[in-house]
């Protein structure tokens, strides 16, 4: 018998079979950014300092950053808005909990679904990066598992935060948190642009871990510091998942 949480993923696949349009929009967003900022702005900027210290074309520099940001945005969307709707209004989880499924299965399944969806988008984006010649190393293949790890971290955190929200109004806070992460996590320009003190703050933020990881892999510039990024993201996802499971039990099984 397959693990029970697998059936939660199955439910989402079933529901999305009729929502292909919505599913497809997930592919478009990162590609639009890539076309506008990578290719458009890239033509003005020329080259910037890459992860190994060498000068690299801007579109190659920004693409892995966009991949990391897309992995974050996709999984946060699924585990905040969509998750909240299912939990609070559609009573999807109440139905699941009347069966052998428990709150932890629900949390795992929802996270698994967010991850699955994010992985498909990330794979497509990576494919376009390769076609457009924006990857310069075979290590870039590992950008995909890295994107999954970023997705896992933000899905866990997003789901945990969602269990504390009372209404859709609270989701303004999600946007307030995501936008600065998106803009300032060395996504669009090198960390060295910041003063030293600010650099350390950025180094502690979650999306920066993902951007650093993706960029290093895209250029094949490996170093031991990447393991810190990996551990950071893995811990974030696991802690988030744990909190979400506990909170769901409290909320749905009072």
């Amino acid at each position: 018998m397959t693990a029970l949480y697998f059936h939660v993923i199955e439910r989402n696949v079933l529901a999305y079979r009729r929502l292909w349009g919505i599913f497809l929009t997930g592919f478009a967003e990162p590609l639009l950014y890539l076309a506008s900022i990578g290719i458009g702005v890239g033509a003005l900027v020329g080259t910037v300092k890459g992860p190994g210290g060498q000068m690299v074309p801007y579109d190659q520099f920004v693409a892995p950053g966009l991949l990391a940001a897309a992995a974050m945005n996709g999984s946060v969307f699924d585990t905040t808005f969509n998750f909240f709707f299912k939990y609070k209004y559609a009573k999807t989880f109440d139905a699941m909990l009347a069966t052998p499924l428990g709150p932890v299965d629900v949390a795992r399944g929802e996270l698994g679904w967010a991850l699955m969806r994010g992985t498909i988008y990330a794979a497509a984006f990576l494919f376009f990066m390769a076609i457009l010649g924006l990857t310069s190393s075979w290590w870039a293949i590992l950008c995909l598992p890295a994107a999954m790890l970023i997705g896992f971290a933000f899905a866990g955190a997003g789901m945990a935060c969602t269990t504390f929200m009372r209404s859709f109004v609270d989701f303004d806070y999600v946007n307030m948190a995501l936008l600065p992460l998106f803009l300032f996590s060395a996504t669009f320009f090198p960390l060295s642009q910041y003063p030293a003190g600010v650099q350390w703050i950025i180094r502690c933020t979650p999306l920066y871990q993902g951007v650093a990881l993706e960029r290093a892999l895209a250029f094949g510039e490996l170093s031991w510091t990447l393991s810190i990024n990996v551990l950071y993201l893995a811990a974030m996802g696991l802690i988030g998942l744990h909190i979400a499971g506990r909170r769901l039990a409290l909320l749905l099984q009072p």
Binding site: T2, E10, R11, P100
Partner: peptide, 9 residues
């Protein structure tokens, strides 16, 4: 009905 049955494995 189908998905609910799946929840029961």
């Amino acid at each position: 009905l189908l998905i609910y049955g799946r929840y029961f494995g």
